[in-house]
């Protein structure tokens, strides 16, 4: 009733939608970098959309399935393969016991999510399954996955004849996620409390220049490279709460976008915030890619986030029919 890591990936970890309610203790939320992809993977296999998944980067872990399982892979397309068969993203797959899942090549995106039906059997820490590597807590032993780790499934899965004597069976429903990710590299932002500290020229350039995601970017934050942005205010800030998407201007005029493993407080000028609805798109961008920012109003940012949530619920509804039909056809609970 488990999967085993037979080869270690560079930074694969267990994440859910994050650990909230502890930021006053300096304990950051963590959680998936791309909440849309993680939710889609969960919905495809009939899980709750907050269920813990494995977040993978390339090169990703290689997994041995010790039991039959229904899985889905969403987010980055890392060219998944089950034994010697290539399998697609954004669709559920039944995998036979003793088969190996591996990822051959990064085709698009930066992070892939693996959901298994019923989820993994793990102990929550402070109400969440997300891995906090700094605190060495949560997820699987508070760290990234490594070779020989064995993750138990929470429920027994048996798919009988649905596998048709093959190593894997690709099921006939899909998640269309294109709408969630804009085709152009434009990330939308709202004003930060120190936006007006920027010179008029810097304000313009924030909205017209291209900025490059530096290779010093990780789950904590994306460091951006571009012509320095200048502020005209000499005031010293004192530390305040910060959050996912906050864009902090560093003393050298470069800036950092806070991501899932961000600190809870910070004292750099907050010039802007990436809107929540564009965090998934940003999370799927790699170092070296260029971004342009577009300033929008607070209300529009909220509308876009709400719309995204509604679309996820629609996806959940759309999937519930074929999922039910499948269960009935093969007499699976």
């Amino acid at each position: 009733m488990s999967i085993q890591v037979i080869k270690q990936g560079i930074a694969d970890s267990i994440q859910d939608n994050g650990r909230y309610g502890c930021q006053h203790l300096g304990i950051n939320p963590n959680g998936v970098m791309d909440p849309v992809a993680a939710a889609a993977a969960n919905l495809l296999v009939g899980n709750d959309l907050n269920e813990a998944v494995i977040e993978m980067h390339f090169p990703a872990s290689v997994f041995l399935f010790k039991e039959q399982s229904m899985i889905a892979i969403c987010g980055a397309d890392l060219l998944a393969m089950i034994n010697d068969v290539f399998v697609p993203v954004n669709t559920p797959i039944i995998i036979e016991k003793n088969c190996v899942l591996q990822f051959k090549k990064p085709l698009s995106g930066a992070r892939a999510y693996l959901a298994v039906k019923g989820g993994f059997e793990l102990q929550p820490w402070l109400g969440s399954f997300s891995t906090n590597t700094k605190a060495a807590a949560g997820g699987f032993e508070g760290r990234n996955l490594k070779k020989h780790d064995e993750l138990n499934f929470r429920t027994v899965q048996k798919y009988g004849t649905a596998l048709k004597n093959k190593d894997c069976e690709i099921l006939n429903w899909k998640a269309s996620v294109k709408n969630f990710y804009p085709a152009s590299p434009v990330i939308r932002i709202t004003r930060g409390s120190e936006f007006d500290w920027l010179t008029e020229d810097a304000k313009k350039r924030l909205q017209s220049d291209s900025f490059i995601i530096s290779n010093q970017s990780d789950r904590m934050g994306y460091r951006m490279k571009g012509d320095a942005l200048i502020i005209q205010n000499e005031n010293q800030l004192i530390s305040t709460g910060i959050t996912k998407g906050t864009i902090q201007l560093l003393p050298d005029g470069q800036f950092i976008i806070l991501m899932a493993d961000h600190q809870t407080t910070g004292g750099y000028p907050k010039i802007a915030h990436v809107i929540s609805a564009d965090i998934p798109a940003l999370a799927q961008m790699n170092a070296g890619e260029k971004i342009q920012f577009k300033l929008i109003e607070q209300q529009e940012a909220e509308d876009l986030l709400f719309e995204q949530q509604q679309q996820l619920l629609q996806l959940q509804n759309a999937i519930s029919f074929p999922l039910l039909k499948f269960k009935q056809q093969y007499a699976i609970d």
Binding site: Y20, T240, G241, E302, L305, F306
Partner: peptide, 21 residues
Amino acid sequence: IKDIIPAYASVTVVYDVAAIR
């Protein structure tokens, strides 16, 4: 409300947009 973060001279409140909306 998902989180309340007191700092030197401020209190930050993180909230669930989708639920309120």
